[in-house]
Design a protein around this nucleic acid. Structure first.
Length: 253
DNA sequence: AAGTCGGGGAA
DNA sequence: TTCCCAGACTT
């Protein structure tokens, strides 16, 4: 019992260190972005759809062009399909554009142009999954939902030394629960921005800046020299290629 | 649980 | 080349 309590307390200390360190580190002006510091749900939503599996630098100009072309969600809803697809050209994952338009029309016609303001309402929109719903809910409405994207998986896996594959069912559950427990519920938007900015600028996928990391003294992966191994993914394109090239080699003999 | 959808930058 | 990017959806 006392051991369990002790371990529990240590974990809580670790979590508090993480939260405080992250917030202390975060300076919004370090990474100014057009969709940062605003609370227009339409603009937030648009930016999040564009940024799905897309680098900020690549999505930036598209976001600006969409906002320019369609100042309101009604404008987007009224746009012809081919015009929107043309504007999306070059971004990839074109189903995002189709879902974007479908959702815009749904909000405009079915919801009277009022963007849904609850997590479940937002999640119901086409093209909006758990991550995007949490992002919109927190950034636009300051609702307490923790974002869990590639940055968050990486930061949490390393700092807490979690080796559960992030793309497994168990992993998604574990990381999501941890993220929710870490979320500073009195300032969800700020906290979510902070952890993603941290992952994008300090706790990088390769060659993370551990030397100048404000959390390095308590980072489990750094302590155990497992930075390069974390986070773990079970889907390994790598493994498949290795297998098939080996198979190929057998056939050639 | 595994597969699919993409262009692009960095190592 | 490989990995990964503010993932979601279908099978």
């Amino acid at each position: 019992m006392s051991q369990a309590v002790s371990r529990y307390n240590k974990s809580m200390d670790q979590q508090h260190f993480f939260q405080r360190g992250l917030i202390a580190w975060y300076q919004p002006e370090n990474r100014p972005l057009p969709w940062k510091g605003i609370n227009n749900p339409y603009h937030i939503w648009l930016s999040e759809i564009i940024l799905q599996q897309t680098r900020v630098e690549q999505g930036m100009s598209y976001y600006l062009r969409f906002v320019e072309a369609y100042p309101s969600i009604r404008d987007l809803a009224a746009a012809p399909d081919d015009e929107v697809m043309k504007l999306w050209e070059g971004l990839g994952y074109y189903s995002r554009a189709r879902n974007l338009l479908a959702a815009a029309r749904y909000v405009t016609t079915e919801l009277g142009g009022v963007f849904p303001h609850t997590y479940t309402g937002i999640l119901a929109l086409k093209g909006v999954g758990a991550y995007t719903a949490a992002a919109i809910a927190s950034f636009a409405f300051n609702l307490p939902h923790a974002v869990v994207d590639g940055n968050v998986f990486r930061v949490l896996a390393r700092f807490f030394g979690i080796s559960t594959p992030q793309d497994s069912t168990a992993g998604k559950k574990e990381f999501t629960q941890l993220a929710e427990s870490l979320l500073q519920r009195d300032q969800p938007a700020l906290y979510n921005q902070a952890i993603m900015d941290f992952g994008a600028t300090v706790c990088l996928p390769r060659n993370p800046k551990c030397g100048q990391c404000p959390l390095h003294t308590e980072c489990v992966a750094l302590r155990d020299k497992r930075i390069a191994e974390l986070p773990v993914k079970s889907k390994k394109a790598d493994q498949d290629r290795a297998f098939f090239s080996l198979f190929d080699l057998q056939l050639r003999r």
